[in-house]
Design a protein around this nucleic acid. Structure first.
Lengths: 128, 128, 128, 128
DNA sequence: GTGGTCTAGACCACA
DNA sequence: GTGGTCTAGACCACG
């Protein structure tokens, strides 16, 4: 389920945060679901428990999960709504990036084609 | 022309590199143009000269500029071609981001509309 | 009567202890009254019996209740007096908190008004 | 300036957060001011740098400070406003606590007197 | 020098 | 078993 790239420039704890976000958005993790325990993830990913804990803290902070000490961590009921705001923000970011590319000479047709590719290949499994 | 955000998490030197890339892509800086001196930029941006120097070094490394000792730095003739590779990389990145949004429920229609917005508003000046 | 918030950071067993204290202070539970059995509370609150037991132990330790093996737990005769000490402690705590607010710029008038509000609205039922 | 109580039940990192809040509210730390470096505080308080770092993270999260990697941490311009919201929340909390005491038989006169004590002793140094 | 991240391993309270 | 906190000490990028 989870995987981390130790060589990446993005911090491990953030990779875990992002992946958890993705899982919730994709419906792999649903509100009320229990997420893997700190220790389990720590072992599975060969990552220090402290690092996992930091991810947990951040996810809690973002309102995506809530942790019940002694029991575990669970996906919050409001996780989806909290994430939809993030989704909107990402759309805006992509828009800005596309604007830059437009300035750099990328045509509307190229962008449309890119969109087509994404949504036709959507059925296939993406190799992340 | 240039501006830096000291509060940003992206390093100052990288902000300067990215902005220079943008200027070249947008045709604001053209091959043969002289770029601002370390000293001037340092004063204008209230940034340590060392930091500017690091940006210069990085831009040189990427083949976007070349420095003439005692005279200054100039945009390389091959800058545009060098940047087209960057452009392609950015396209790939955007593709990945769109993939994620697709998983999060964003539809093809929404993305197409976003593209339309960018390219119809392109005539207007965007306030970056 | 009782209710627990599993998401709260304050331990479940302590929530139960505090609520029992409140009930005694408010005269809802009086010396000699039988308090709910571990089993019943466990079921009613969907809480592990061990956790309830811990609350019972703590209340006993504080001299607020005494347990009669095979019969149940009862509010102690000295409960009210025992709690008056708690009351005094809470007064001191509130005093400290008000001190902090005073440092933060809250005026005496604001505090007096707050007191007025509490004691004029006292007739109405507060929804806790 | 800062001091921590290792025996306290409230986490060290939170003690530091709270003290920083107090300093800002009291005008000891003002927007734009640099706060002590992680290492300095670490040594001064005999606390692990990691623990200090955690406080920094939390203060940043609350919008009270912003950290510039490689330079230091500074009190945010909006710190005061951010804190005034906290102040209001604390007022509400105290109100609830006073309500409980009222139920427990504390009279309006006792509370008024407590307020008086706080504001007459305000000139003297409080021993925290 | 600064803040940021991470590992290794410990202890605690809680369920 | 769980999450939460903490120490000790390391490495990195940045200015």
């Amino acid at each position: 389920m989870y995987h981390v790239d130790a060589m990446s420039r993005v911090p491990v704890y953030e990779q875990i945060v992002e992946q958890t976000e993705k899982f919730i958005l994709a419906g792999i993790l649903n509100p009320g679901d229990k997420i893997p325990s700190v220790r389990n993830l720590s072992i599975e990913l060969s990552v220090n428990p402290n690092t996992i804990q930091k991810s947990i803290l951040e996810l809690d902070r973002r309102g995506l999960i809530f942790s019940v000490p002694g029991k575990g961590c669970y996906v919050a009921e409001e996780a989806r709504t909290a994430l939809s705001a993030v989704k909107r923000k990402k759309m805006a970011e992509i828009k800005d990036e596309i604007k830059e590319l437009a300035l750099a000479g990328v045509t509307k047709e190229e962008m449309i084609e890119l969109i087509e590719e994404v949504f036709t290949k959507k059925e296939e499994k993406e190799n992340d």
